[in-house]
Structure formats: C-alpha cells, structure tokens
Write a protein that binds this DNA or RNA. Structure first.
Lengths: 249, 249
DNA sequence: CCCCACCTTATTGTATACAATTTTAGCAGT
DNA sequence: ACTGCTAAAATTGTATACAATAAGGTGGGG
C-alpha cells in the first residue's frame, strides 16, 4: 500500500462542516453512518473489509473523531466489528447468527403482518404497491445494490405501518443484519422470487386474509433463508483446514 | 533515533476512578457505559437529569472524548437522549412508547418462554431458582435499586437460555428500557407481586406446561404494565395546560 | 535454510485545543 | 416595573497532538 504520506491539509479550519451548502441539516456523523450503511447493504463493501479511520476521514473530509463516532454506531448495530487496537471490519456473520437472525425475524414479522392485515389502509397499500414497482424496476435493471436495499425496506415499511414503532425499529436492525448475511451467502437467483412473494403477500393483505398473510410471510422468510448457502454447522476452523489441505496439493 | 521517554506524560496521573488494580482488562468506555447504565436502572439518575460531559469526565477521571463515546452508546440504547448542542439527558419515555415496549416484550417473550419450557435443563432451572432467591432477598431488604435490576435480569436470563442469542440481545434492550419506564410511572406495591409471578412461571416450566407458562408470562407482563400509572393518551401539551390551569388558582 | 528477537512503522486509543452554538446575565427602552 | 436585545459564560462539536499497542520487516543465530 502507499507508504507515501499523502497529507491532506484540506480540512476546514474548524467548526461545523460545510453547513448549508446544499449538503444537509443532519449531523455529519449521521450522514457518514448512513453512507457507510448504504455501502454495506448495497455490497460495495464486502464482509471482512477493513475500515481504516484515516482513510475514511480523508474520504468524507472529516477528522478521525467524527469517523470514530460513526464506527461506534455501526458496531452497535453489529454491521461492523471493532477489534480492540486492530481496527474496524465489516462483520462476517457466522452461520449460527444467520439462522438466529431469520428465526428472530419470523417471530416478529409473523405478528407484524397479522396486525397489518387487520389495520392496513388504502393509502398504505398504495404506498407498498409503489414500493413493489420500484423493486421490480431495480431487478429488471439488474441493479443488485438497490434491489437488496429495497427488498429489505419492504419489510421495515410494513412494520412501521403496523403501528408499533419500537418493534419497527427492532426489525430495521434485524433486516439490515440479515441483508449482510444475504450478501455473504447469497445465491442470486432468489431475487425476483422475493419480489413475487412480496406481491403475493400484499395480495393476501388486500383480501384481509390474515391466515394466508402470516403463512406467506413465514414461507417467504424461510425461502430466503433456505436459498442461502449456509454451511451446516461447520465452524470456520473446518473450512480453514479444508482450504489448507487443498492448497497443499 | 531512539524514542526515549523524555517527553513528560502530562495527564496520565489523572488517576482512574476506582483505585482497584489491574481490572482494566475491559475498555474504559465499556466500564463507563455499564456504570451509567447501572445508575439508570437502579434509579440513582432520574429521567430528565442532565449528563454534562465535563462533569462525567471528572467523575470517571477520563477526558470528554471517552465520555462522549459512552454517551453515544447509551443514546443508541435509548437510555439517554442527545439533544444537539444541548447535551445528554436521561430519557423520559412517553406513555405511547411505554405501551409499545411492553407490547414488543409480549410478542418476544411469549415465544421465548414457550421454547424454554421445551428445552430447559435441570441446571438452568437451578440457576433461575437461585436468581429468584436473590430477588426475594433484595425485596426483603427493601433494596429497590437491586430489586429492579434483578427483576429485569430474570427475563433476560431466560431469553439467553432459550437458545437464540439475537433474540436475547433484543430483549435485553427492551427490558432495560422498560425498567426505565417502570421507574418513571412506578407504583411500588407491584414488586413482591412480580417475584411471585416469576415463581409461578418457573413452576409451569418445571411441569413442562408450555400453555400455562405462556399464559403466565403474558399475564405477568400485562400486570407490570397495568400497575404503571400511564396517562391515557394525553399529550404533554394537555398536561401542560392542566398544570397551568391549576397553578392559576 | 529456517526461525527468533528486535526494531521500525503504521494504526488505534486518549487527551487537549479551538470554533460554534446555546444559555444566561445585564442593560436599555417603553 | 416588565419585556426585548446584547454581551459574556458555559457547553457542545470538531480537529489535532500525543501515547500505547499491534503488525511487519530486518538482521543475526541455530
């Protein structure tokens, strides 16, 4: 890597970032968290990638202090893993964690969809239909990044509409993490399938068929999980040994 | 060039908070988060209290940088609320949030207790029995602080034993937040009652009676919520007007 | 030829310095 | 005397500087 010290004294004297120059009224930390999260969800940062503080600082034009705050936030969401005195790395979820994530989602989303089926308004259904159109567009355009983000947001959107903000927030975290899992153990063919299942789900809600909606949601989550290439219960050590054995030859 | 230690370590003698030797295996941020969390859960810091950065820094013997990291962590757990350029305050949960918290807990803990009833080992039951003894001791001693902590930990303990670490972590957050709620809208009489219900719950698990266990858990959570003096749906504005009307007289 | 100790280097952890904003106290005006 | 503005103090937001630690490279020894 570049040992040259590319000094970047381009930092503003001090104080707040560029302020109102079109950027945003949001806190800069918040902005950075969102940018990195988007990069993770859209698979521009692969699991295991190192997130150096100085590198990020130069990219976003802020000091390490601000970067560090953002990294702490991301670590608490389990999207990145902080290794003391080592640095921040994109989390590589273990198979066990992947299964637990989808299990937790089934527990929560079963209730969410049941309630939403009872309370959904026409406007909410229209919004979800719009969302589904966007999903289809991203899939048709082959934009895997946006596709993965939208497929996850669909679930969060329903949870927010179901009326319990606390549950919606929990689910948002779970969906983000399981998106990371999907990217790790992905099998690409499942994409359009997911969107079709979203469609069927909405249809059941429109018919106010709670039983069918719950069943479709559970099947949907089970399908997504099953389409992952989750190693049975193999620990990373076994994979390592296998890799080394092959390398020997 | 030999990097001799000729520079003066200016601020190291600031001294650690607890003079205990050698326990600093943990990160200092982690320690501070736990200390503040304990203070919140045990009601030594009331909702609405301001947590100034310099004050905390002096208390714990660290700089504002470290304090700020801890405050960010606590804010993400919703235990404190950060108001931009204003400071950090102990969260004052609104009635709506309180109801949503207990609703979320019912959704999750129903499943947790059902699974635990099926999988509980003798050793796990013994550990829970020990925990219950501690609860009783704290109640008998009139130690409200420890009591509240233990009453919450009971639920988290069961979730951890139920085998899904992700769900257990979600519940830990919910329990912490609902403990804060309990302290705000408390009605003290419910304490021993909770412990009795924990006892009944354990009994159902011992009998492997999943249906009873689920029912007892739901009733338990409903009781805890009902014992709160949650204002109906009054918004703070209404409370303010009422208060002013009374003050006028 | 390989392995180990030491040193160099890069990166993280923490403290301090400075800028900006909010709050509060003081003052003038009506 | 009370309300509205202005300046000083306090507090937060951000940047930089310094200390500690882990990774990597080099030379010497087995």
């Amino acid at each position: 890597m570049p040992p040259r010290k590319l000094s970047t004294p381009r930092n503003r004297p001090a104080g707040r970032p560029s302020g109102k120059s079109g950027k945003s009224g949001k806190s800069s930390t918040e902005t950075i968290v969102k940018r990195i999260t988007a990069a993770l969800i859209e698979h521009r940062l692969p699991p295991g990638a190192k997130l150096g503080e100085v590198a990020l600082g130069e990219i976003f034009g802020v000091s390490r202090t601000t970067i560090r705050q953002a990294l702490n936030r991301l670590a608490q969401d389990k999207l990145i893993t902080l290794m003391p005195a080592r640095g921040a790395f994109v989390t590589t979820p273990e198979p066990r964690e992947a299964r637990e994530l989808f299990d937790a989602r089934r527990v929560i989303e079963r209730v969410v969809i049941e309630r939403f089926t009872a309370s959904a308004t026409r406007a909410q259904l229209a919004e979800l239909r719009d969302h589904l159109v966007q999903e289809r567009a991203a899939i048709a355009a082959g934009d895997a990044a946006v596709r993965n983000r939208l497929l996850g947001e669909f679930h969060v959107l329903i949870a927010e509409m179901a009326g319990n903000a606390v549950i919606a927030e929990l689910l948002r975290e779970l969906v983000q993490r399981s998106t990371l899992v999907t990217l790790l153990y992905q099998s690409t063919r499942a994409a359009s399938c997911s969107s079709d299942e979203h469609d069927a789900l909405l249809d059941a809600v429109r018919r106010r068929d709670a039983i069918a909606a719950v069943r479709l949601m559970e099947q949907h989550l089970t399908h997504v999980e099953r389409d992952l290439a989750l190693p049975g219960d193999k620990s990373p050590a076994l994979d390592l040994r296998a890799a080394l054995t092959l390398a020997r030859v």
